[in-house]
Design a protein around this nucleic acid. Structure first.
Lengths: 93, 93
DNA sequence: AAATTTGGTTTATATTATAAACTAGTTTAT
DNA sequence: ATAAACTAGTTTATAATATAAACCAAATTT
């Protein structure tokens, strides 16, 4: 039985990654809304995904305010695909 | 976005449940082999699943040794099905 | 110019997972 | 018959992880 990637096998990070899978650059606040996470938790989990190179984080300013955007990397996409395959075989779906 | 049942969204417990989904009564040692877990971890996670009534645990003796068998309950089966549906919608699969 | 809001980050705490240590007994070798 | 080794687990101490509360810097509103 193949092991589930523990970085992806966590609800918030999986929500983030599966959300990012369908779009390009997404703002922090958009993810906040999409995932219903707290800001602190979202910040921490985004950094973990970034550290693993599953997403990239780009910081800028918009209308004078800091603005953080994220998008998935190729590695992130590959790992998600692989995670899904593992799940499918585990669950027979 | 529906929440993933945290009792099932854990690798070992998910392995246990998805293994039990396809069989009837299974012995502790069989699960040990099927999941490659440590005995302690398996014992703990089985108890959690039993506490939630997702599985039942039956203790007996075989050839003088204690023997523990488990099987899934109807609730366990329902919750697994529901977990899979949530995952599918989350991951678009 | 004080109070509030925005857009986050850091960090302390709570939760969870895991493996090491233990229990209780059985079998085997001496 | 008794010590050593093994079976089949459980308990518990520690490690890892998740989460939210507290914080920060700057911008805006009053």
């Amino acid at each position: 039985m193949k092991k589930l990637n523990p970085l992806l096998h966590q609800e918030l990070r999986l929500s983030i990654i599966s959300f990012l899978a369908n779009v390009e650059w997404v703002e922090f606040n958009k993810l906040l809304e999409a995932t219903s996470a707290s800001k602190g938790n979202l910040s921490v989990q985004l950094k973990k995904l970034e550290t693993a190179d599953y997403i990239e984080i780009e910081k800028s300013f918009k209308d004078n305010y800091p603005l953080t955007r994220c998008r998935m990397t190729e590695l992130g996409r590959d790992e998600l695909e692989s995670y899904i395959q593992t799940l499918k075989s585990m669950l027979d779906i």
